[in-house]
């Protein structure tokens, strides 16, 4: 025989799955929501997405090549996912230079400063988003009008910011509600907001695809949504004049986006199903606390980042059930 035999430890077969495939499945799952955002916000949305994606890919390549001096891994798809998620989290009229700064924060600080894919503690896209939100609060919270909502205005506020402002002015919910879109509108995506957060239906569609492809499990999204729903429900039942009904909390403010696409980020979420449920409940509790009692109308980004920090601790203490007990 001319060729040498290969010797390697078992197993000798592989499932043919790869990290790239997982990343591209995530991208595919985001396509419906992405298409809807372009439909609603027009070419501006496309501009934001393109800038964010290209900036993320470029920063990943440049930093890996010239600062870290390792082989760039831009094609693994993770920077692409970060770019799209970052775009999903900003209004479509955001100036290009803010998006680029956000991308740098996401890739540079959020991901590569920890060592790259797999080593980051926080979800990179959220690091970028929060960085932009704190640095450029005005630009980040003035959304263009949703062409599908039929509200006549140049800029529109998100339902949550309308509520927050109303309550701080002492207006009862029953009055505020008149200015709010209906639950159905929110579900299908007829509201103002960031690119990716407006249509709950399309986000759920993407989530179902990822569930089907086993990219994510149900534990994190369901535990977040259930916690938010239950907590908001309790407050609503205590005083419906100050607290809005839980449907609004679930369908607005990027909760679906966060629960389905951001919190489920593999790298920064816990490993065991039990840990994932603890993590989801934590995100739900913090989200509602920020929304109801904090300064910001929305809280899911901060909630996810805070729980990201607890992930190593959860992994340390929450172990899978071992075979053979003890």
């Amino acid at each position: 025989m001319s060729k040498l035999l290969t010797v390697s430890p078992s197993p000798h077969v592989h499932s043919d799955d790869s990290t790239q495939k997982i990343m591209y499945r995530v991208v595919l799952a985001m396509v419906p929501a992405l298409a809807w955002s372009v439909f609603v916000f027009g070419i501006d949305a496309l501009r934001v997405i393109l800038i964010a994606v290209l900036a993320c890919l470029a920063f990943e390549y440049l930093i890996q090549k010239y600062l870290m001096k390792i082989k760039p891994s831009v094609m693994d798809g993770s920077a692409l996912v970060t770019g799209i998620l970052l775009a999903f989290n900003v209004p479509s009229n955001l100036p290009w230079w803010i998006i680029i700064i956000g991308s740098l924060a996401a890739i540079g600080i959020g991901k590569l400063s920890f060592g790259g894919l797999g080593h980051n503690i926080f979800n990179p896209a959220l690091v970028g988003r929060v960085f932009m939100l704190i640095s450029f609060p005005v630009q980040m919270t003035s959304w263009p009008v949703n062409t599908q909502s039929g509200i006549d205005a140049v800029t529109s506020a998100t339902p949550l910011s309308i509520i927050k402002e109303g309550i701080s002015n002492g207006t009862p919910i029953s009055e505020i509600s008149k200015n709010l879109p209906s639950a159905l509108e929110m579900f299908w995506g007829g509201i103002g907001g960031s690119l990716g957060e407006i249509s709950a239906a399309l986000l759920i569609l993407g989530g179902l695809y990822m569930l089907y492809k086993k990219v994510i499990t149900w534990h994190i999204p369901v535990s977040i949504i259930a916690t938010v729903g239950i907590m908001a429900g309790i407050f609503w039942m205590v005083n419906p004049e100050i607290y809005i009904n839980p449907v609004y909390h679930i369908l607005t403010g990027g909760l679906m986006l966060g629960a389905i696409f951001m919190a489920t980020d593999m790298v920064s979420s816990p490993m065991t199903p039990k840990g994932q449920i603890i993590y989801g409940i934590g995100i739900g509790v913090i989200t509602i606390s920020i929304r109801l009692f904090g300064a910001y109308p929305e809280g899911i980004s901060f909630a996810i980042l805070i729980m990201n920090a607890f992930t190593p601790l959860i992994n340390y203490y929450v172990k899978p059930k071992r075979f053979g007990g003890k």
């Binding site: 040498l4 035999l5 290969t6 010797v7 390697s8 430890p9």
Partner: peptide, 17 residues
């Protein structure tokens, strides 16, 4: 060489198989 090793590249693991 009479064969080609294709596992984790450490002597400890190669020598264990």
């Amino acid at each position: 060489k009479t064969n080609r090793y294709d596992g984790a590249t450490t002597c400890a693991i190669a020598s264990s198989i």
